[in-house]
């Protein structure tokens, strides 16, 4: 038989152990939280939305000025059948433009990396296209190509073109002298040097540009839609602005934000899968 004193100490010990276990769990959770890629930003977003919701409710803000996030989500989910086709149009324009701009930029980059003369001739044109505000060109493109997808695709392509071009030239050129000399010692052809050295060397540069450009291309499509369109999320924003349909406007904005986040993360995901050898792909953002 255990004495009452023994019983008591056992209970105390058990309690202490329980407490320790809980503490450990707490520490573990804390660690998990701070080390996770998704949890901290998710928490920040939730906090932001709660703040927004509270502000709208407590201050009785007019929903035409600023609707509560719950109202926006309700509108978005309730009329998703209305929004999705428009989102699809914008996504289609943006992605087509992105791939077109990327293809032209990389092709031009290959030529310009091989010839300084070509670079000196063509780069100023690319820079000119880059410094001209895209908003200024957009109406012209609508005038030329009409209200269809084409002008939006082209605008998205132009936005994508310049960062991709600069980074591809850098990537193709900035090879290690030692690597080049090693390839030369084997009498590797220009083509082999390109495929086995310049191209893999350029991948980190290309991906870092692609990550920015993919969301820029969405912007390009929206700017195109503002200038003249019959569909797309940019069209919704413009129309709802005219009719003061703020909830609808926010719904479209939400969709654009989600689209941007998804696209950037898809590029990031491919980058991590493909460039596991590269240092920066091991770090966040």
């Amino acid at each position: 038989m255990r004495s009452a004193a023994e019983e008591a100490t056992m209970i105390v010990r058990q309690e202490v152990r329980q407490k320790q276990r809980e503490d450990k769990l707490l520490v573990k959770l804390k660690l998990k939280f701070s080390e996770s890629i998704y949890l901290p930003p998710a928490a920040a977003f939730i906090a932001l939305f709660l703040l927004w919701e509270a502000a709208v409710r407590l201050l009785n803000v007019n929903p035409v000025t600023l609707p509560a996030p719950t109202a926006v989500v309700r509108e978005l989910v309730g009329s998703i059948a209305f929004y999705l086709p428009h989102a699809w149009v914008t996504l289609y324009e943006a992605l087509l433009g992105f791939f077109l701009g990327m293809a032209v930029a990389i092709t031009a980059g290959i030529f310009m990396a091989h010839s300084r003369l070509l670079e000196r001739m063509l780069l100023p044109i690319a820079i000119l296209a880059n410094v001209t505000p895209i908003m200024a060109i957009a109406p012209l493109f609508i005038l030329w190509f009409g209200f269809d997808a084409l002008p939006k695709v082209l605008i998205a392509a132009i936005i994508t073109f310049f960062p991709m071009l600069i980074n591809s030239i850098m990537g193709f050129r900035s090879i290690d002298e030692n690597h080049l000399e090693y390839m030369n010692s084997l009498h590797a052809s220009k083509r082999e040097i390109f495929t086995k050295l310049r191209l893999p060397n350029s991948l980190p540069y290309l991906f870092s540009a692609a990550r920015t450009c993919v969301s820029l291309s969405v912007m390009g499509a929206v700017v195109g839609e503002w200038s003249g369109s019959t569909e797309g999320l940019g069209n919704i924003i413009m129309m709802s602005s005219n009719y003061m349909q703020t909830e609808r406007m926010f719904s479209a904005i939400f969709m654009l934000a989600i689209m941007g986040i998804c696209l950037t993360n898809i590029v990031r995901f491919i980058e991590i899968k493909l460039l596991s050898w590269h240092v920066s792909s091991n770090r966040g953002i």
């Binding site: 690597h179 009498h187 460039l275 050898w277």
Partner: peptide
Amino acid sequence: KQFGFVPQSPALFPWRTVLQNMNVPFEVN
């Protein structure tokens, strides 16, 4: 391809594994 060149810096391609780097002389020219 009579030369095996070993420069001062090892000139290994960072995007290849050690074994894949050993293959380079057989992949070009």
